[in-house]
């Protein structure tokens, strides 16, 4: 049988992903994360009497800590699975991917296990984050003069 004809059979029996539903979930959960983040920034700014710039660093650290803690307690993967991009795109997703890899490879040692595998999923985010930061930094330098 031709590969194209087989592709048609596969297509006929492959279910469609619910893109609209997934998008709505991600939109609302992601939005809720934004609200929580903003709430934390305001709270830290008020309680510690610091600028919102400093408070936002505190907020990021808090969310990373919560993401890591809930991953270690073993149920954050179910939340991420249900909330999809709503929890993956914010900083919680980054923390979750690193912590889950660290847990997975702990048994293979500190260096050969955790050390070399912790960035298995998150490594791409860092690499392309740095590359794009440089690229846009250079563009900005030439267009706006720094």
């Amino acid at each position: 049988m031709e590969k194209n004809r087989y592709k048609d059979i596969v297509k006929d029996h492959t279910p469609k992903e619910n893109r609209l539903y997934n998008t709505m979930i991600a939109f609302f959960v992601g939005g809720l994360m934004g609200v929580i983040g903003q709430g934390l920034v305001d709270l830290y700014a008020l309680v510690f009497d610091i600028s919102t710039k400093e408070a936002s660093i505190f907020m990021i650290v808090t969310l990373i800590f919560i993401g890591c803690l809930l991953t270690c307690l073993g149920f954050f993967d179910k939340w991420v699975h249900a909330c999809k991009a709503g929890l993956i795109v914010p900083i919680t997703g980054f923390a979750h991917s690193m912590m889950s890899a660290a847990l997975e490879y702990r048994k293979e040692g500190l260096i050969t296990g955790i050390g070399s595998n912790m960035f298995k999923l998150a490594g791409s985010v860092i690499i392309y984050g740095v590359v794009s930061a440089y690229t846009f930094g250079i563009i900005r330098y030439f267009l706006l003069g720094g």
């Binding site: 279910p15 992903e17 993967d77 939340w79 991420v80 699975h81 999809k84 889950s100 847990l103 997975e104």
Partner: peptide
């Protein structure tokens, strides 16, 4: 899961298939 897919505790969404 560890060998072929993602870490077990990672909860990325999966396809229906």
């Amino acid at each position: 899961e560890k060998q072929f897919r993602y870490p077990v505790e990672y909860g990325g969404p999966k396809k229906k298939t």
